[in-house]
Design a protein around this nucleic acid. Structure first.
Lengths: 215, 215
DNA sequence: ACACGTCGGGACGCAACCGTACCGTCGTTG
DNA sequence: CAACGACGGTACGGTTGCGTCCCGACGTGT
């Protein structure tokens, strides 16, 4: 019934990408600086050098703003992550996670939002499928491959395994915020691998990992 | 030079313990409900059924209030925690930690304050010596005993060991907030024990732990 | 029994923030 | 080239919290 818009927004009447980007960046910084609890739209606008209206035109509320931007920032980047051995996979995974958590913004925002998730169901839901589901998936595949290769017993509990993998690293980087050395990472890889049920340390000094082409 | 107080406060001029207790309880509840960022003195006073003045007479600022009360709540209770075997110690430790983290207030307050510690040096310092130092001490003793008993290699890194012990449980209870079964706890004990370098599972079905009286 | 002095409570001024309404501006489309 | 229409920015009322001040009430020690 001719409900159609008379004309498509164009010219000055279209959202400017540079403003949107400035808001996104400012939000992340502000979130890291004061946390979700104290986050204020006005502060984000100030930091971005933008008016509040510019924000409200794009997002309807503080919650929507945070969730959309954080989700966008967290999505993407999923390296194949298959080195051919359990210990290799663990080492690589730890390095990726450590690299991500080293980012000062991430290391402040993630624990903050995870804490907030304990009292805000919407945040909880979003983070659940954004972070933990991803971990379960990656961890599950990692475990599955190790089981197929015979490195781990077939009854390995993937859920417990993910906790064992993620827990110590998250604790050290995000909570204790202790510097992370390569030697420590090696120790952790070894501990997690044997803890999961793999054979004792360094079963095959070399070989493996070179012949990863299947069939 | 006769600077002395003319008289010691007495009668109605002394802080009432019941009011102090009400404030403490209200603070914990409020902290769990809204987090440190959103915490307001007025809300605490309202919840406690008390005037703001009553709070300001006892603590000078929001930060001092939170730190003093949280510190008081976290201090104390330190069971001997020595069962005679590494796995027994781990099992007991996990049960104690799990019990503490099951408390809904604790499971909301602790992650929140730990996240806040990343941006507030005073909170960081307090939690450091309140939680983590305690963990290092308990964990260190636990590891030390296991090494003396020959259950763990002498070069075991206590710091990494604590991460390995605390990390998974904290992740599951405080972050993922997944229900915890006894079977899972057993799996975790076994994984951590072998991960630390102890011999394969269930080395001595019984004995041990019964003859704990020293010389 | 009286005087003491702090108690708890209510009220105040100040500051920050929320979400909205209105304004002049600007680039595109017909 | 002219009109359209959403743009970004300012201004506004309403709400909330901070930290302080003043008040009458109250129980103890002299």
């Amino acid at each position: 019934m001719t409900t159609g818009k008379r004309r498509a927004p164009a010219g000055a009447a279209v959202l400017r990408d540079d403003i949107t980007t400035a808001i996104r960046r400012a939000l992340m910084q502000e979130l890291a600086a004061v946390g979700y609890g104290r986050l204020s739209i006005e502060a984000v606008a100030r930091r971005a050098g933008v008016s509040k209206t510019a924000i409200y035109r794009r997002w309807s509320s503080k919650l929507e703003l945070v969730l959309e931007i954080v989700a966008a920032a967290a999505t993407g980047k999923l390296p194949a992550l298959d080195t051919g051995t359990l210990r290799g996979d663990l080492q690589l995974l730890f390095q990726v996670v450590a690299h991500a958590l080293r980012h000062p913004l991430a290391s402040q925002i993630i624990p903050d939002l995870l804490a907030e998730a304990a009292r805000n169901p919407t945040i909880d839901q979003t983070l659940q499928q954004l972070l933990r589901a991803r971990q379960q998936e990656i961890g599950g595949r990692l475990i599955g491959r190790a089981v197929q290769r015979g490195e781990l017993p077939p009854d390995t509990d993937p859920e417990a395994a993910v906790d064992l993998i993620v827990g110590p690293l998250y604790w050290r980087l995000a909570i204790a915020r202790t510097p992370l050395t390569d030697a420590y990472l090696d120790t952790l890889v070894e501990a997690v691998a044997t803890g999961l049920g793999a054979g004792a340390g360094v079963p095959r000094p070399r070989a493996a990992a070179t012949d990863a082409t299947p069939a």
